[in-house]
Design a binder for these strands. Structure first.
Lengths: 258, 258
DNA sequence: GCTTGCCCCTCACGCGACGTGAGGCCGTAG
DNA sequence: CTACGGCCTCACGTCGCGTGAGGGGCAAGC
C-alpha cells in the first residue's frame, strides 16, 4: 500500500506518455514542480505529483492552456462551473465543426467529376456548401444564441429534422433497395463476412450517415445491436425475410471489424 | 453558369472561416499560392484554389502538419475520391471522440455541488471524481495508443456486441418502460416540449447510450429522424399508441434543442 | 483635386508548447 | 580509469499563425 517510492523523470515520462522535455517545461513554468530533488539535483516525483500530472494531461487534452491549468490547480477558489462550461461550449463548437465538415466532404464528393468527366464550374451555393461549417461566425449564431433561436435552429434543423415528404420517399426507396439486396443475399445463403455482405452493410452505413447522423463503422455496430435487439424492429425487418435483422447485424459487424 | 469569378483574400477568408493572415501564410510557404495576382499585386483565388483550400483545412483539422499537407496535395498520385472518403471516416471518428468528451464534461458538470451554497473548496478527491468519466486512455487508443491498450479496447468491444439473452431481456424491459411512459404521455395529450416529455426523451437517450453507442443529444435527434422516417419501425412503435413515433421524435428534438 | 474609407500589400517581431542539441555532472560496472 | 547511461542547465529552433507598422490602390463624396 505504502507506495511512497519516488520516480525519476524518464520513468514518469514513460508512464504518462509524455517527453522528458515536457516535464522539464512544466517544471520551468511552475506547472508541475517535483516535490523534491536528490542531492545531485535530479527531479524526484512522488505519487501526488503523478496525480497532479494526470490532472494536467486531462485538462490539456480538453484544450486548456497551460497557464489556465496552473491557475485551476493552484487556486482553491477556482470556479469549476465556469471552466467546465467553457470547455463545454468549446467542445460543442468543435462537434459542430466536425459535423459540418462531414457535410462539406459530402458536398465535395458530390461535386467530383463522374468517371473521367471534366470538372464543371461550381455555383456560388455549391462553393459555400464546400465550406459549410468552416466559418466560425455561423455557429457563433448557434451557440451564443442558446442553440434554440429560430434562424440558427432552422439552419441546423436542415439535417436533424424537417425532411419533406419527397425526402422521405427518396429515403424509403434507398432503404428499400438496400434491404432487398440484403434479403436476397440472405436467401442465397451468402456469408455475413463475405464481400457482398460487407458491401451491403457499407451501403447501409452510408445511408444512415447521409440521412441521419455521422455513422462511423464502430457506431454502426452499435446500431446493429439496436436493430437486432429491438424485437419490434426486428419483426418488421424480418418481413423482408426470416432472420434478416440478425443477418444484417452480423454483416455490419464484419464490415466494421475487418 | 460560367462562374469563373475569382475571389480576393477577405472573401476567401470569410467563406472558409480562416484569417487573412492564414491565407498569407499559406501563400508564403507555398501551400496555397493563388492562381494569379491583379496588376496591383492583389491575390486572386479561383474555384480550384478554394477546393484545394478545403482539402487543406480538413487535413489541418485532422491534425496533419502543413508540410505534410503540401506534400500529399502535390503528390501526382493524389486521388480526390479516396482522400475524401478516408477523411469522412476520420471525421466520423473524431465526432465520436468529441461527443464522448462532451458527455464526460456534462457528467462532471452534473457532479458539481449544487448552487454556491455549499460550494466550499473542493477536495482533491472530489476533483478527481469529477474527472472520473474522463480517462484519456480511451481517446488515446485512437490517437497514439499510449496509456491503456487492451483494457480500453475490450471496454469498447464489450459494447459493440455479445449481449446475452438475459441482457436482451433486461434491455427490452427497460425499453418497454420508457415506451409505455411515452405512450401514456401521448394519450394524456402532454406537449412534446414539456418537462415530462423531455424527461422521457432523456431516459431514452441514456438507454441508447448505455446499451449501444455514445449517444449525444444531437445524434439522438438523428436517431429520432430514423425512428420517425422508417415506416416499418414507426408502424410497430405505433402499436404503443397512434403516432407515438412522431411524438417521441418531437420530444427528443425538444430535449436536444432546449 | 483632395480627402476619406476600405481593402490590399510586405516586412518583421511575438507567442505557446514544446523539440533539439551542446556541454557537463553523477554514479556504477567493467 | 574509463566507459556508459541518466541526469542537469542553458539556449536556440520549430510550427502556425497573431499582431502591429508602414504604405499603396481605388471608388465615393466634398
Amino acid at each position: 500500500m505504502a507506495r511512497d517510492h519516488t520516480h525519476q523523470v524518464k520513468e514518469v515520462a514513460r508512464i504518462a506518455g509524455v517527453s522528458v522535455r515536457t516535464l522539464h517545461h512544466y517544471d520551468e513554468i511552475g506547472l508541475l514542480v517535483p516535490s523534491s530533488r536528490t542531492r545531485a539535483g535530479h527531479r524526484s516525483y512522488t505519487t501526488d505529483d503523478l496525480l497532479r500530472l494526470q490532472q494536467i494531461l486531462i485538462r490539456r487534452e480538453l484544450g486548456m492552456p497551460l497557464r489556465e491549468i496552473k491557475r485551476s490547480l493552484d487556486d482553491p477558489a477556482f470556479d469549476w462551473r465556469i471552466a467546465l462550461q467553457r470547455q463545454r461550449t468549446q467542445l460543442a463548437e468543435r462537434a459542430e465543426r466536425t459535423a459540418s465538415m462531414l457535410r462539406a466532404v459530402d458536398a465535395a464528393l458530390a461535386a467530383l467529376p463522374t468517371e473521367g468527366e471534366t470538372m464543371k464550374e461550381m455555383t456560388p451555393a455549391q462553393i459555400t456548401d464546400l465550406f459549410d461549417g468552416f466559418d466560425p461566425s455561423r455557429h457563433d449564431a448557434e451557440t451564443h444564441q442558446r442553440w434554440g433561436d429560430a434562424d440558427a435552429y432552422r439552419e441546423s434543423a436542415r439535417r436533424t429534422s424537417g425532411y419533406t415528404r419527397a425526402d422521405w420517399d427518396r429515403y424509403k426507396a434507398e432503404a428499400h433497395d438496400i434491404m432487398s439486396a440484403a434479403a436476397q443475399l440472405l436467401q442465397a445463403g451468402a456469408p455475413t463476412d463475405g464481400d457482398e455482405a460487407r458491401a451491403v452493410a457499407e451501403r447501409h452505413r452510408l445511408l444512415i450517415d447521409r440521412w441521419f447522423f455521422p455513422c462511423s463503422p464502430v457506431l454502426h455496430t452499435g446500431l446493429a445491436d439496436l436493430y437486432e435487439g429491438d424485437v419490434r424492429f426486428g419483426q418488421n425487418l424480418d418481413t423482408y425475410g426470416q432472420g434478416l435483422a440478425t443477418w444484417l447485424a452480423a454483416a455490419i459487424r464484419a464490415n466494421a471489424g475487418g
